[in-house]
Simulated assay, not measured.
Amino acid sequence: MQHAPTSAAVLAVHRDSEHRFSKTTVDTIELQAGLGVAGDAHWGRTVQHRSRVKANLDQPNLRQVHLISQSLFTHVAGQGFEVRPGQLGENITLATAPGWLWHELIALPVGTELHFSQGPVVQLTGLRNPCVQIDDFQPGLFAAMLEKDAQGRLIRKTGVMAVVLQGGLVQAGDTVTQRLPTLPHQAMERV
């Protein structure tokens, strides 16, 4: 049985035309169907992430949009780190709300659609895999972005990745509703 859609709000949006660790907070981003965030270094039909381009530049871009819940920043603040929206390279920071906490966001199944109030729709493809560059940003933060569950499985906390199904504008204050895919659900893996 599927759960009722859960709504939240966009806290902030970010983009950067260069491959830098953090992204600049902007008033509005434009999502383009099948491509990603207009003006962002990860925009394109095929993979744009530098390490993945080296491996196979023809693979589809499953990392067009990166989303993080604001609650992740609160979580790592409890471990002594200060992280603000955009600093972990996300395109969209979701405001903390029931159903949108960092651990709930990364627990959504592959294929979950996020519908934004101005029309855009993205589909979750997997988890962002934290990289050691996080320690260049703040020493020790890489370890804080990983932990093991009770079964010994690795938990990656650095948000989710998505592809754009329907384009349009996204800005702070927009509402977003999640729609789960049909059963059976598939857990997200790193992409």
Rank of each mutant, 00 (worst) to 15 (best):
T74A: 14
A38I: 13
F81G: 05
L88N: 07
T25V: 07
V65Q: 01
V47L: 04
H42V: 01
Q87K: 07
F73P: 01
G39A: 08
Q64G: 12
K54C: 05
T46R: 12
F81Q: 02
P60L: 07
F21H: 15
Q32W: 11
G89E: 00
S71V: 09
G86E: 07
R50F: 12
A41K: 10
P60E: 04
R45A: 15
H19C: 12
N61G: 04
T25D: 07
G44Y: 02
R45D: 09
A12L: 05
G44F: 02
V53N: 03
R63N: 08
Q87V: 01
R84Q: 13
F21A: 11
L67E: 00
A55R: 12
G44P: 02
L62P: 00
A55H: 11
I29H: 09
T24E: 15
R84V: 10
R15K: 15
N91A: 06
F73M: 12
G80K: 06
F73I: 01
G36Y: 03
H49E: 13
V53C: 11
L57S: 14
L72R: 01
L57V: 06
N91F: 00
E90I: 12
G86L: 07
L31M: 15
E30C: 11
A33Y: 09
F21S: 04
S69G: 12
L31K: 05
H14C: 15
L35Y: 13
G89A: 05
G39I: 00
H75Y: 15
D27L: 03
V76D: 05
P60A: 10
A55D: 06
T28I: 10
Q64L: 12
V47R: 02
R15E: 08
E90G: 05
R84M: 06
T74Q: 12
A33K: 08
H14Q: 09
A12G: 11
R15F: 11
E82D: 13
S71W: 02
I29P: 06
D58M: 07
Q70I: 08
L88K: 04
I29V: 15
S17W: 10
E18V: 07
V37G: 06
K23E: 04
A77Y: 01
A33E: 13
E90F: 07
S51V: 09
L35S: 13
V13F: 03
N91M: 03
D40M: 03
V76P: 04
H49S: 10
L31H: 09
R45W: 03
H14S: 13
Q64V: 05
W43Y: 15
D16P: 01
A33H: 02
T46S: 10
T25G: 07
P60T: 01
L67A: 07
E30Y: 10
F81C: 08
N61A: 12
I68F: 05
E30A: 12
V37E: 09
K23A: 01
F73Q: 03
V37A: 09
L62Q: 10
V65N: 02
K23Y: 01
S22D: 11
R45L: 10
V53H: 07
H66M: 11
W43A: 14
E30Q: 14
H75P: 01
G36P: 00
Q64M: 11
G44E: 00
Q32Y: 04
G78K: 03
G89P: 03
N56S: 12
A33W: 03
T28W: 13
G34E: 11
N91G: 02
N61M: 06
S51W: 06
E18D: 14
T74W: 04
L31Q: 11
V26Q: 08
L72V: 04
H42Q: 13
N56G: 04
N61Y: 05
V47H: 05
P85T: 00
